Simulated assay, not measured.
Amino acid sequence: MMKMKLLPLAICLASAPAFALEQGEYRLNYFGSVGITHLGGEDQGRSYGVSGQTTDSWRGDQLSKFGAQLTYGLTDTLGVTLQATAKPLQDEWQANLEWAYLSWQANDQLMVRAGRLRSPVYMYSESLDVGFSYPWLRLPDEVYSQVQLTNYEGADVVYTLPLSYGSVTFQVAAGQAKNRDYFAYDDLFSIDYGKLFGGNVSLATNDYGTFRVGYVEADISTTIDGVVNAFGTPTYRQLLELKKDKGKFTSIGYQYDNGTWLTANEWTTRVTENDNNASIDSFYLMGGRRFGDFLAHVTYAQLDENEGRQNSWTLGLNYNIAPTVVLKTEYKRVDTSGGYDGVFVRGKQELYENELFERSGGLAGVPARNYDGDIISVGVDFVF
């Protein structure tokens, strides 16, 4: 029960405040995660994850992160919010200014924000770095690897309408995100999101959980390229080029938690013009039960692309060490089919060898293969 009572605090650390602070008041909070993870199975030397940080060595840079959030009341209705994090990108730790915005609380229902804001992509986008706010140590990769953008520069409007059985919240956002990092084929590239527009509706009920529907689109520009060894000769290859091509992302989510039983579920689809893919569909289904200070949960997740499918089962057991500190342990079994790499990392050279095998009718190169792995993760999430 204690964890459920503290969830509003955890979510408040990384979401629009429900009310403005009075002039001169401030709120300073800290949050973070410390964890280690290991990839086992047949694919020794293989890496996994949205930035390839899960390997066959015990590593903490996939799961560990630290953050602080400051909210200050400039007037009784106008405030400023800053959120900074420190987390690794590939093999280096980086400091990030995730949020830096002004907010105007017009009334109890309407808030307008402008500056650097969280991109409203996923159900857990607002609390993405606050691991205490969700049951997993690592969010389901099949869904949360689809869009690597975490923030943008622009504005949004948030309107909450009270109802007799709960409340409904509308959010509309617009802006852009330039020169962001994008991880692909074991390398980092620059990517721009122009004319970003999104909106979502969340219905929070008193007894039946929270329903959310969201949509985001943007004009995407990036070039993914590199040098491969083609029959002993270094050869430049352009793998993908997008020039203000439209990307669209739709999500539907549902959460429920009555203090004993809980569930979280999310379905997404992504479509990008001229990226040689049809829609990329993914979802997860999670159910769990609390036993005193323990939480046991199980998750099935699936990711489908043109090339094939990745699916996984995750078993987790959490223990509340203190009211604001939770120990989490997880075992995740991941499999792919159809010669598909899924969230496993395939390098540019391997991709070239796979394509060469197809073009030559099997006379050269190597065939695309399936991947599998057992991922063990242990860590602690906290908020203060």
Rank of each mutant, 00 (worst) to 15 (best):
Q53L: 06
Q53R: 14
T55C: 08
D56P: 12
W58V: 15
W58I: 15
R59C: 11
G60D: 14
L63H: 06
L63C: 01
L63Q: 07
L63V: 06
S64P: 11
K65D: 04
G67A: 01
Q69A: 14
Q69F: 00
L74G: 07
T75N: 13
D76V: 07
D76R: 11
T77C: 08
G79N: 15
V80S: 03
T81E: 10
T81V: 12
T81W: 06
Q83F: 01
A84E: 10
K87I: 04
P88T: 09
P88K: 14
L89R: 12
D91S: 15
E92A: 07
E92H: 03
W93A: 05
Q94L: 04
N96G: 00
L97P: 04
E98R: 05
W99A: 00
A100N: 03
A100W: 01
L102Y: 04
L102D: 07
S103F: 12
S103E: 14
W104C: 05
Q105F: 12
Q105M: 06
Q105A: 12
Q105S: 14
Q105K: 12
A106L: 12
A106V: 15
D108C: 00
Q109L: 02
L110S: 08
M111Q: 13
R113W: 00
A114S: 09
R116T: 09
R118W: 00
R118P: 01
S119Y: 00
P120N: 10
Y122M: 08
Y122N: 05
S125A: 11
L128A: 06
D129K: 02
D129T: 03
V130S: 02
G131V: 09
F132R: 09
S133M: 08
Y134S: 03
Y134N: 04
P135H: 10
W136T: 10
L137F: 09
L139W: 03
P140Y: 04
P140K: 05
D141L: 03
D141K: 02
D141P: 11
E142C: 02
E142A: 10
V143Q: 05
V147A: 02
Q148A: 05
Q148V: 04
T150K: 13
T150W: 03
T150G: 00
N151Y: 12
N151A: 09
Y152D: 03
E153F: 07
E153W: 09
A155P: 01
V157A: 08
Y159F: 14
L161M: 14
S164V: 08
Y165N: 15
G166Q: 14
V168P: 07
T169E: 12
T169G: 02
T169N: 07
F170M: 09
F170V: 12
A173M: 10
A173F: 08
A174M: 11
G175Q: 09
G175E: 05
Q176P: 04
